[in-house]
Write a protein that binds this DNA or RNA. Structure first.
Lengths: 265, 265
DNA sequence: CTCCTTGCATACGTCAGATTTATTGCTATA
DNA sequence: TATAGCAATAAATCTGACGTATGCAAGGAG
């Protein structure tokens, strides 16, 4: 009805049958709002809906087989994420990627599920590389004795899991260790960042991008960080964490150099 | 109607007349959605609506004098920011601050307008301290010749503005300089972070929290960063930026040590 | 007395229709 | 050519209705 509309077929439930690409992480009975939100968010972050494209509420309602209320609520959420911009008399326009709230967990999930996966991975890893050493230094100043003890304990368990070759357990402990460091830093934003990183780590596992194999040096560095924090030695904690980050960065680099073009699995 | 309801008066348009605290940054003719969103977001981030409190759509519609549609759309946005959680048969519950998307620009604005102002300022400054040196190092690898030249030019203009005592111009150039460094780092998340920092810097100005007075050393460090980036010397760029951040951190520290209790202006 | 099942009241979820309003692009006029 | 007025359009808002999951409590079985 609204003018020439726009070729919608890209949004149908095709999920190009490339296999594991999009098993639609949103359960079927999750409610219409969540379903439509996920559909549109995925379509936008994957680039299927190019920036500048215009959507119309009534069309979307028809094509998604939901009422306008649902569509409107979805668009309001997408607008708050910077993904779209809706204006009177114009419609709802897709905004360029540079406007997106790339710190929104939801946006990160959508991008991890898209061809941008590698870019997202790289950005977050670089951010992590910058933040975690600083967090370790702050934790050395602010961690309570209990927190410090927990960290030492976690490092010990990581060592055990690494020796035993228990990969799943090691991954869990690894995430927990870094979460604890960021928690002890006393900076709420660092903590939230950890949630994003955890998203990536589990996502990395889900997309089978990188098996995590612990080595001797990494284990030692984790123990060093914990010990330095317990002894309030900020500099040593920072340096040890820098080493951990360097290794993580090297592992990541091997990923995005190996997978030449995006879109590959 | 819905049970004992909840004492709503805290949300009225009181804006306690303490003066400049809340001139309601949202224009009156900004639309009902924006108005209600701002009201509720402010009330939640300020703590007037304590975590665990329960709101009801119909009550909100009455008290804000808008239709349920508007309230529902607002709540959906607040839910996507992690500020509330709405469940059937229960109502809409305020979530604890640890669940908030503290990277959402809107949330940051609300928190800057609240008593949490100092906490927000500190968190972002610490984050900035962690990120910008890394960004400078990356920029030294990735900046195009044009970008590097621009940076050198900006540093020169900052020097001129600093000498001339042109404070407003200096602030503008300062923000632009750091934005350019983060842009040249080639990391989209770093760039977004800069937008948050700019939010803080202008907010800081708006709340008269800190006059920015440039000194000789700071000017030299900015010039060093620019030059190091142009010469692809990542280590020197990182070190110079660390010095800038140390100074920024010291200035901030003087703020949140001076203003003992929050709530002071 | 405890535990589990069952039924009910409740507040959100979804829908459809109507009306208002802001904005854009066109057109006619100075 | 520039500007002011006009008409078309799609979002913004309101309203009333019905569906539906769910927390809670009453009641029965062990």
């Amino acid at each position: 009805m609204q003018g020439g509309s726009w070729n919608w077929y890209v949004l149908s439930v095709v999920t190009p049958s490339t296999g594991e690409a999009a098993p639609s992480l949103v359960a079927a009975q999750a409610g219409l709002h969540a379903r439509v939100l996920d559909e549109l968010g995925t379509a936008i972050c994957s680039g299927q809906l190019a920036p500048g494209s215009v959507l119309y509420i009534d069309d979307l309602a028809d094509q998604c087989a939901v009422s306008r209320s649902v569509v409107r609520e979805v668009l309001r959420v997408l607008a708050s994420m910077g993904l779209v911009d809706t204006r009177r008399r114009v419609g709802t326009q897709i905004r360029p990627a540079s406007d997106w709230n790339v710190f929104d967990p939801q946006v990160i999930r959508w991008r991890l599920a898209s061809a941008d996966r590698i870019v997202q991975l790289r950005s977050l890893t670089e951010l992590r590389t910058a933040v975690e050493p600083q967090a370790a230094a702050l934790a050395a100043e602010r961690a309570t004795p209990d927190e410090a003890s927990d960290l030492v304990g976690l490092a010990a368990k990581m060592w055990a899991a690494g020796k035993a070759g228990n990969e799943a357990e090691f991954l869990r402990l690894d995430i927990e260790f870094h979460r604890q460091v960021l928690l002890s830093s006393g900076n709420e934003m660092f903590v939230k960042l950890q949630e994003l990183v955890a998203e990536v780590l589990t996502g990395r596992h889900h997309y089978a991008l990188m098996p995590h194999y612990p080595d001797e040096h990494a284990l030692q560095h984790h123990a060093d960080v914990a010990q330095a924090i317990q002894r309030h030695d900020g500099e040593r904690a920072r340096d040890a964490m820098v080493h951990i980050m360097e290794q993580a960065m090297n592992e990541m680099r091997s990923i995005w150099e190996r997978t030449g073009v995006p879109g590959r699995d």
